[in-house]
Design a protein around this nucleic acid. Structure first.
Lengths: 216, 216
DNA sequence: CTAGATATGTGCTGAATTTCACAATGTTTT
DNA sequence: AAAACATTGTGAAATTCAGCACATATCTAG
């Protein structure tokens, strides 16, 4: 959908695939397998092997012909490209079931995405602590804490009615990137980027294909 | 990514957009606005208006020139196309934070996706009840319950190591569609379809673009 | 009933993306 | 050292997708 980001050396689909490539690479690394072929990597990610080679060729020649790609180097290089070789500070707004689950999710932490602040507008929740130790602040404190804690990415898990307002609050606090889980399209200023995640779209995809899989 | 579904009348991007179109349509319907233009719908979803018209033209002429599209009819029609005009029975495997949050998510229920069974392998959890009233069963009961409860879609929220195994269990129980939240690519038989959702891929996208937004 | 305004449906064009296919290059074997 | 083999890097073809621009159709006002 709305992935029309302005300037960027790499094509958008390549960037997304690079992220997917890191998954099997991490497994190979942990398993001590030193080298992987484009063919193998492609199979693990469900893409064409030429695609893999093209993607990797975008940033130099990493492979060795007749051999493949060195797992450790490749992984490091991809992480450098994607800027995931460092930590990112996130905040989350909306501590319902989903928000809480995300804040506690170890998968994020493992990849360097750290939730350093949590916000909600429900007086019942404010002041309480998440199991992981994060304190829930009122949204009024958002601008202040974003600056103090150097938060760079905001995650929205509020009901859809409040999502746009929260997004604007985040933007005006200086945040330039938002991951939005509310089922609504967020309007953003030119300089900012939003990724929308909507599970029910995935389910609707499945439903369509289930119904139509055998009709031909 | 791996959305290379076999046969399908509509192009994959169209199907995805159709799902997005339903969001503003529902809002318009609730607000009592009877008609919407492709221009307005496009703006709400962040796409081009010609795109909207093309997408809708795939299944007949629904619009009225000079006027627009009748909201109620259009919404019904899209739901029919996507097969979301009926209820779907789902089960969920892996009741960690995320699994629990999804099972309780009202957004799914509202759209006709009903979780009718929950499974986990942790003896601590088995036999307990989710806040919504769903009982957590041992995975051994899965084949049985899938058949009895006519479950059509499986949702996987286990750790990645167990995801492939759970998927195979689901497939052999007769399930043909899986929504997978484990950060791993699931291999599936020809006849089945899998949608993978991986939040950290979205975050990596954001990270890349944040870092590269201003370099040009 | 006609003119003007509005908004759809769609042929065409260009851009982006994927895939093929093979030359280039490194490795292993004999 | 040469032959056989494996796998990369990439030009070119094929495919898919998006957007323009306008003919076509409907509504409204006078």
């Amino acid at each position: 959908m709305e992935k029309a980001y302005k300037s960027s050396k790499l094509p958008a689909p390549t960037i997304e695939r690079l992220a997917y490539y890191t998954r099997p690479l991490e497994i190979y690394l942990k398993a001590g397998i030193p080298v992987i072929s484009s063919e193998a990597l492609a199979r693990h990610c469900g893409v064409n092997s030429a695609q893999v080679r093209k993607d990797l060729a975008h940033f130099g020649e990493f492979g060795v012909r007749g051999v493949g790609y060195e797992v450790e180097t490749l992984l490091k290089e991809i992480k450098k490209i994607l800027s995931t070789d460092r930590e990112w500070n996130l905040c989350i707004v909306g501590l319902g079931n989903l928000g809480t689950a995300l804040a506690e999710n170890q998968n994020f932490a493992k990849r360097g995405y750290k939730f350093v602040a949590a916000f909600d507008s429900d007086p019942e929740k404010i002041g309480k602590y998440l199991p992981g130790g994060l304190k829930i602040h009122p949204v009024e404190k958002l601008p202040d804490l974003v600056e103090k804690l150097k938060i760079e990415i905001g995650v929205i898990t509020t009901p859809p009615q409040q999502a746009q307002g929260v997004a604007e609050l985040l933007f005006s606090a200086g945040i330039k990137a938002i991951l939005n889980f509310a089922p609504i399209q967020i309007r953003s200023p030119e300089c900012c980027i939003v990724e929308n995640v909507d599970f029910s779209v995935n389910l609707e995809n499945l439903a369509y294909h289930l119904e139509n899989l055998f009709e031909e």
